[in-house]
Design a protein around this nucleic acid. Structure first.
Lengths: 195, 195
DNA sequence: TGTATCCTTGACAAGGGTGTCAAATTTGAC
DNA sequence: GTCAAATTTGACACCCTTGTCAAGGATACA
């Protein structure tokens, strides 16, 4: 039963992600990960070194997926449609499937409990998200569709989305999240006062 | 060295609160609390039963203080000034003093990691906060000062404030939080279009 | 086939956390 | 002054977690 790696890395990272999402970084033990992935604890240590490294791999994979999807929906010219699609992604991310919870927000909330490296990764994701949103808003702002300058609007959306993730933890009501998101969109992109 | 309780309950709860804020409920051990309060672990168990009970006492005290202060600043007739004061309180709460961090948000983010009783307390605080805000908005809305119906506006502020607490953990920039809060206020309470 | 390499597995040591308890000690009341 | 009640204290048992390691087994390549 050895000689060459016997587990599929993608599968392990996907299952580890689900655990980290639900329990958060600190509360997840290597034993939890071993149980969830079906890979023995010793093998995980052998392959990744420690929990932090395994988390960083998981997080990187998650970040790439999330930012790619976000960039894609923000491409369109209609900023209202783009924002709606963005919140759909973000909310689905928190509420759908067995891997509920927002990995970014949960990790961010742990604050100084986690290592500087992990905090830097979280900050990096939020910075990138902010930049994507700001670019989309800048395009829309040129068309006079926005109630705010692009950088203020992006900051607002990033902050607000963190709030949604916390509200999901407390109330677990995806419908309410969508309603609140729509309210924000209405504030940011007022219906044009007809020429 | 015994016979009657030798510690001041208020002092113990205040110091415990500081620890819970910084580390969060799960990450705080009874030994942490014993060190911070100067009361031996055994005495804490004797006085409170367990960590959850001690946390609930701490949280109740925090909740009362926070809601009282909020109700007070929301009393005024000028909704813009009231909101500004509210965010000042909330942001000071997260960033000032040795007890940094928002206890509500940090606990909320732990989600299902904590007991149903703790989650109910957190929900209770947010419900009360929402009600206070909704009442203040309802008074302002009657004067046509608001961009949103009172219940949507209160939901928005509650959600947004959770987001601020997460952003504080990530960026630790109180000034940026204040700027973002002011942006939200401007969206919610548009400057009157002069009669 | 032989051998070096790599992965897996179970065990181990060390550290920390929780909750309990008996002994010691002090207080307050009778 | 004596006694009951309550608090403090340190120790104990138990469990979980991390990280390491040696032994065992499979693979690939020469």
């Amino acid at each position: 039963m050895a000689g060459v790696r016997r587990f599929d890395e993608e599968e392990v990272l996907a299952k580890a992600e689900a655990v980290f999402r639900q329990k958060g970084y600190e509360a997840t033990s290597m034993l939890d990960l071993a149980s969830a992935t079906g890979v023995q604890r010793g093998s995980l240590y052998h392959a990744y070194g420690d929990k932090e490294e395994l988390f960083l791999r998981t997080f990187g994979r998650y970040e790439a997926r999330f930012l790619t999807a976000t960039a894609q929906v923000l491409e369109g010219a209609d900023i209202r449609a783009a924002l709606t699609a963005f919140f759909d992604i973000a909310i689905a991310n928190m509420t759908a499937g067995p891997a509920r919870g927002c990995l970014t927000t949960k990790t961010a909330a742990e604050g100084e409990q986690t290592s500087a490296r992990i905090r830097a990764e979280v900050r990096g994701l939020l910075d990138e998200l902010d930049a994507l949103l700001a670019a989309a808003f800048a395009r829309a702002g040129a068309q006079g569709a926005l109630a705010l300058p692009a950088d203020e609007a992006s900051r607002m959306v990033v902050t607000f989305t963190r709030g949604l993730a916390v509200m999901e933890r407390v109330y677990g009501d995806a419908g309410a999240l969508r309603d609140t998101a729509r309210t924000l969109i209405d504030l940011l992109v007022p219906t044009r006062p007809s020429v």
